[in-house]
Amino acid sequence: MASEAHGAGGHSPLAQFEVTKMVDLQIAGLDLHITNSAIWMMAATALVIVFTTVFISRRAMVPGRMQSLVEISYEFVANMIKDNVGHEGRPYFPFIFTLFMFILACNMLGMLPFSFTVTSQVVVTFGLAFVVFIGVTIIGFIKHGLGFFKFFLPHGVPGFLAPLVIPIEVLSYLIRPVSLGLRLFANLTAGHTMLKVFAGFIVPLGAFYIIPGVIPMAAVIGLTVLEMAIAFLQAYVFAVLSCIYLHDAIHMH
């Protein structure tokens, strides 16, 4: 069924999200196939590694264009942590940097024609979101012990409100990974679906009337620019929210 939808040019706008097996792999009875998704994850990983190691290798005192870009991304994430977490966020810099660069690379690679957008996969975005959520919760308990539970009853709330406030706070805390993962997944999926839908209008309309075909073409060009911005913005939002959750775990509000 998957290959049917994917073949013949993939007429469904959702066909682009189809995961296909590229290499069969079974380890200890588990299906660990290398899928197209896995290959694009590896591509993103390789891209980030090449970007952050090759372009800095000249260690130029006056940086060239690419080295500047590497340094800018380093300082961008460093400042993000300094502003949102503070000085205590320093040890988590490599993690936030990895998170930001990985999502950014996946989003950007997804903008290439015929590519696969890894971050449009629920498993991937929720996987990352839960890693952040679980990690942050563990950090909170390490820093504050059982005192971290006080996080669910904000300071200054009258005692009789506690039965109302605590469930709301717990729920809002537990919903964090869902909103974090869902936001990235939904943005990327919706954007790419929309691009595909508009792109699908170009040829059918253009085949009969030149002018109407131009309109969806213009829309697709505009949307592509918009999607580029969203690709960056969603990576940024994911990283910033992770920083804010980290701040909550370290400073308790």
Binding site: L32, S37, P94, T98, M101, L128
Partner: peptide, 21 residues
């Protein structure tokens, strides 16, 4: 595809983290 994707996500992310850090 949940399990294989998650597995390769973990592999890629951990590799990337180690190289970055």
């Amino acid at each position: 595809h949940f399990l294989p994707q998650f597995f390769w996500l973990a592999v890629c992310f951990i590799t990337l983290y180690l190289v970055m850090a």
